[in-house]
Nucleic acid binder design. Structure first.
Lengths: 199, 199
DNA sequence: GTCCATCTTGAGGTACTACTCAACTTACCG
DNA sequence: CGGTAAGTTGAGTAGTACCTCAAGATGGAC
């Protein structure tokens, strides 16, 4: 609404850039809950400046993470779209999401909505949540996914992956369990592209 | 080994009792990572006394939790033993464990081995880990459980339940995912009590 | 009753992290 | 060049939790 990005003094703008770069680095390494003092240190400015420029952790998050999260999720969305069947698309989506969550603590926190006040980030992630729900619906219509595997189930599955990811002492193999849960929901029905639409 | 529980002054013994009672209460409510200061407060003694009597969190844990954990796990073991088939026993075990983990944060931490230095507790829980592995083996021999669902998978499944349990903002429905993972591993083969033992 | 080994106490040190604000510094207008 | 609004700084306050230890209290043997 209000484009009040009036005239920021040059040093202030420079510091914002440094802080954003540092935030990206630290958040990606340690998750969105990383100490803000560390970000300030990496940026080479004082904590006071960080608070002056961004005010809250959420504002800082919103100013750097939606961009990278959006790009990664969009990329995944494209890979998903390339799938020939709904089943293939949903599988690509699930494994892609779990990979993203595993590779980047910041993405993981984002996907798990650990900072709901970071509204821009939440919005960004909402898109891929809808995609997930859509894919489940498509697979239902295609007949390849059991109807009792719901969109909510997909959400829970990804939430559990995120939770497991946060634990450094996670036993190798937790992923097998989730994979199994999804795999059990595929029907053996041949895909019928001309399935009826009326319930 | 060394029964050096020589002669503790009466006040010291009383305080130990008070501390153990408080520890049981607080641990059960908040998990084994609960602030020791709070336990001392509930017991009505100072933190110093807690450290004098027990030295470490792990020692305190070991002095109260194995008893209750052992009893709960033994109880579950009995319920399990009453199952007619290996499948029934394993199902009782898994759902019973998840229930225990859900009902008591202390049990949850115990089962997840969050305090490996609490050796007595770890030993207590080891028994039920073996039981789990046994039950998987039994179900394999019975033919009711797919061979690619291993004892390790069982451990991972329970570990994930424990992880999910610790999050207060857990989405309802995570349990459905785990249930699905186990359910997918049942074969439809009729149980053959006279299955061959030689591989 | 006395006395002292045994116990208890709780303020204080350490280590994190969040967040603030008075004093200082600097970009930039004229 | 000032002058000053805008910006930076970092020590300080606050909250959480762990763990310690010198000083004081007390059980119980004699």
């Amino acid at each position: 609404m209000a484009a009040q990005a009036k005239t920021l003094r040059r040093d202030a703008r420079d510091n914002m850039a440094k802080l954003r770069a540092a935030a990206l680095e630290v958040f990606s390494a340690k998750g969105l809950g990383a100490p803000l003092e560390e970000i300030a240190k990496v940026a080479g400015v004082s904590v006071g400046t960080l608070y002056n420029r961004f005010g809250t952790r959420e504002a800082l998050i919103d100013s750097v993470i939606p961009e990278i999260a959006g790009s990664r999720l969009k990329e995944l969305g494209e890979k998903v779209a390339a799938g020939a069947t709904a089943r293939e698309r949903l599988e690509t989506f699930v494994h892609g999401m779990i990979d993203l969550q595993h590779q980047d603590p910041a993405l993981n926190d984002a996907i798990m909505r650990r900072f709901p006040e970071a509204t821009a980030l939440v919005d960004t992630c909402a898109a891929s949540s809808s995609l997930g729900r859509d894919l489940v619906d498509q697979a239902h219509r295609e007949g390849s996914l059991a109807l009792d595997f719901t969109g909510e189930d997909l959400f829970c599955l990804l939430w559990m992956a995120g939770t497991a990811n946060r634990e450094e002492a996670a036993p190798l193999g937790w992923r097998r369990i989730l994979t199994r849960a999804l795999d059990s929901a595929w029907t053996d029905q041949a895909q019928t592209p001309a399935a009826s639409d009326t319930p």
